[in-house]
Each structure stands twice: as structure tokens, then as C-alpha cells.
Design a protein around this nucleic acid. Structure first.
Lengths: 234, 234
DNA sequence: TGATGTGATCTTGTATACAATCTATCGCCG
DNA sequence: CGGCGATAGATTGTATACAAGATCACATCA
């Protein structure tokens, strides 16, 4: 929203980010058809940059762009969701394995600082704040892997799973459990134990039977009460 | 090139594929600036679909699209290349691990058929044909993982690494070694041994010290004799 | 002689106009 | 009364026009 455009970022880039945000936060629901003209009008630009933004989103898999049929937000099936989490778990595990071997002292320091920040949010019982700081924690692990490409891929998928990840905090005492798991992850990385770090991060991603079922159940609950899902996600 | 357009594929989609092909096969060299007007003229369309194609390529990381500076093909550093292969190895390993547990009899049959086809090309000493069939072999492994999302990610990265993978066959008796490795992969998958399949696939990707150094060396050799690289890659 | 500033030209980014195709409504026929 | 087809409206895809910024060359000055 800040109009301080010191660096003239490409218009379609900004648009992509804004539309992305609305999809990821659930303002635009799955199944919604995004009308180019409406978007153009609502953002005060012509259709051209809107189209370019949509193409970028389609390339990232966030929307489904079928020829002559327009852009629709795909309804992510439970199966598809499971697949994505399965990959996410492995990418995180890989980051952890590499980080345990490659992390620098200053990076470890920053990771621990991020963990302490999470601790504060946890103690304060503030899930929203915890959610935010959790993102930072994971970002630090990605960086510590010292594989830039891997970090980008992990961050991209992380973003795409954001709505579901957030949802997950609604499950009873997920925050506490998550915090415990972070502890284990840090310890493994600090100890330079790659396999243990990988295992800890893999376990940290919600794909194991119960947790994933919880997630899907919560999702169905939200969908059942048709529209409020957007508000609930925000 | 076939004009049998029964299904009206989007124009920018076709363009993306064609430009992608030229990048991946080395017709357009790293460092090249892709001029929108030139591309439009050479494909006989206006700048609009060309731009849309470029945006897609940029989203996939195949080109670098900087605001007001145009599209340039990034010079992939050895470090970056190593990072990408490191991720590729892990994705392949994951496919193998899952495939060992989930492959169906008919899929295993097809995988073995693909392997036999590779054998024929190997015996005939035809690296070009082997290269092509090798792609099919890996595609079968992706499918057998029964994780559609993973399969897509793996295929996308596979495509992006295509030029280098191809280059690698120039190394002495790489084809023979590759073939041996396929054998081991198939055996592990058929035996349902996920960890062994994962290890075999991880080892199959050229990132280990010597092989990777060979690759980079070959690359430098080609770059040294400036332009012929394109021809050599094709 | 080299560096810096200014202007011309070229390229990208955005808007608008037009063409092609898809959807939906209405009417017709069984 | 229901199903099918044609036409009108709307929406996407492509082309073109115009605006804004970047590059490069040239000239001027130290």
C-alpha cells in the first residue's frame, strides 16, 4: 500500500504480488473466476499488465489459466495438498541436512535469535505473531543450506502452502508442538547432525496421518460454512 | 512444426515452447539479449504474445527479465549449476523412494520396456537415441512415484538441466555407466527397496566430485571456442 | 586526452482497438 | 414440457499506437 516507489518495480510485478496475496490469504476463494476487466478496473490499470500478472501466477501454479476460459483459482484437492506437503517435507529436510553441515556461526546465531523470538510469541500466546516469526525461522534454515536454488524453491512452495500452514495453527496446541520441534531442529543443526536435522524437519511438516487429516477436516469445516472461509483465513 | 492444430493451443504457449527449445538446445547462448521485436518478426506475430512467452520463461527461471532492460539468458555459474544438480539429485531420489513403494505392475512393465529400449540404443552405440530414451526412462520413474506434484517439479527441473545433461554424454563412456546405473535403479524399485532406489538415483545424477568437474571442464572448453557451442549442443 | 553531461534513438511498458471464440439466453421443435 | 440449436452478448487473445525510461554517441570542458 505504501506509495514510496523509490525503485520503479514493474507494474505487473506489483500486481502479481497483490493478487497473489489475495489468493493466499483467501480473499479470492478456490473456484473463483478472475475477470481481467474487473481486476484492471479495481487496480486502475489496463488489461495488459493484469494479463501479465496472471500469466506469472499461472506459471507458479497459483491459478489455472485455460485458453479462452479465463483464470480460475484451482480447488486444491486433499490429494494434491498431500502431494505438495510431501514435497515440502523433503525440501525442508534437505535444507536441514545441508544446513547442519554448512551453517556459519553468525547464521546459527541468527537462527537461534529467530527461535528465541518464536519463544516470546509462544509464551505470550500470540499465534499470529508466532506464525510470522515461524516464517522467519524457516527462512533462516533455507539460507543456511547454502544452496541458493534450493532456498528459492523451498521459499516458493512455502508461500504456496501458506494458507494451509496458517490453518493448521487452529488445531489444538499446534503452536506448542511446533515450538518443541523447532528446538529439536536447532539442536540437530547446531550439533552438525545432518540426518537428525533432516528427520526433525521432515517430521515438522504436517503430513503424518493424524495431522494431515486434522488439516483436511478443518478445511472441510470452513468450506461447509460457505463464504466465511476468507475471513477465517485472514 | 506439425500444423495439425486440432486443439487451439494458446499462441504464447507455442512461442514459449519454441523459445525454450532454442535456449535449451543452445541456439540462443547465455548472455544473449532477446529482442522482443526481433522475436516477434521472426515468428510472424506481434510483440504481445512474445512478451507473454518471455514472462512465462522468466517465471520458470530460464531467462532473466529485468525492468526496462529486456530479457537476457543468464550465464549459469558453475556454483549455480551445482546447486541445481544437487536439488535434482534429491528430487530423483525422492521419486525413486516413492516409486519403490507405490509402482503398479503395469508401470513396472513400462519402466522395464523403457530400459530395454535404452539397451538397444546403447548396443547400437547411438548416444542421441540413448539420450532421448533416457528422458523417457526418467519420466516413467516420476510417474511411478504417484505424486503428481513431485513429478511436475522433477520434470521441470529436468528440462532446465537438459543442455548440461546432454553435454555430459560427451564424457568418455558415460552412456555405458548410465546404462549400468539404470539397471541398479530398476532392480531396487522392482524389489520394493525404497532406500536403495533413492541412493541409486541420487548417485545417477552427476554431482559427485569428478563427474561434475568433468562437466564444468567440458563446458569451459565449449565456451573457449566461442560460438560453436550451439552446434556442439545440438 | 579523458571524463562528464546532454541529446537522439531505440526499447520496453501500458493503453486501446479489434478479432476470434466461448457462454448463455431465448426460441423452436419433438 | 423438455431438449436442442441459433444468435447476441461478453470475454479472451492479438495487434497497434503511444508514453516513458535506458542506452549510446557526441560534444564540451577540465
Amino acid at each position: 500500500m505504501s506509495k514510496s516507489e523509490v525503485r520503479p518495480l514493474r507494474r505487473s510485478q506489483q500486481l502479481r504480488e497483490q493478487i497473489e496475496e489475495r489468493i493466499v490469504t483467501g480473499v479470492y476463494q478456490p473456484g473463483t473466476r478472475l475477470d481481467e476487466q474487473d481486476l484492471a478496473a479495481s487496480f486502475g490499470v489496463s488489461r495488459t499488465p493484469v494479463r501479465e500478472a496472471l500469466i506469472q501466477l499461472a506459471a507458479g501454479g497459483l491459478i489455472d489459466l485455460r485458453p479462452r476460459r479465463g483464470a480460475i483459482i484451482p480447488e486444491t484437492s486433499a490429494e494434491r495438498l498431500y502431494e505438495m506437503f510431501e514435497v515440502m517435507a523433503e525440501l525442508e529436510a534437505m535444507c536441514g541436512r545441508l544446513a547442519a553441515r554448512r551453517i556459519r556461526p553468525d547464521e546459527l546465531e541468527r537462527l537461534q535469535a529467530a527461535h528465541r523470538a518464536c519463544a516470546a510469541a509462544h509464551d505470550a500466546g500470540d499465534p499470529d505473531r508466532y506464525y510470522l516469526l515461524n516464517e522467519a525461522f524457516h527462512e533462516h534454515v533455507y539460507t543456511a543450506s547454502h544452496n541458493g536454488f534450493l532456498g528459492e524453491q523451498a521459499a516458493a512452495l512455502h508461500l504456496r502452502l501458506r494458507p494451509y500452514r496458517r490453518l493448521q495453527l487452529r488445531v489444538r496446541d499446534r503452536m506448542g508442538a511446533s515450538f518443541q520441534e523447532h528446538m529439536e531442529i536447532i539442536e540437530a543443526i547446531a550439533a552438525g547432525d545432518g540426518e537428525r536435522a533432516a528427520a526433525a524437519l521432515r517430521a515438522h511438516i504436517v503430513i503424518q496421518g493424524e495431522r494431515f487429516t486434522d488439516l483436511v477436516a478443518t478445511l472441510r469445516q470452513l468450506n461447509a460454512q460457505d463464504k466465511p472461509a476468507a475471513a477465517a483465513l485472514r
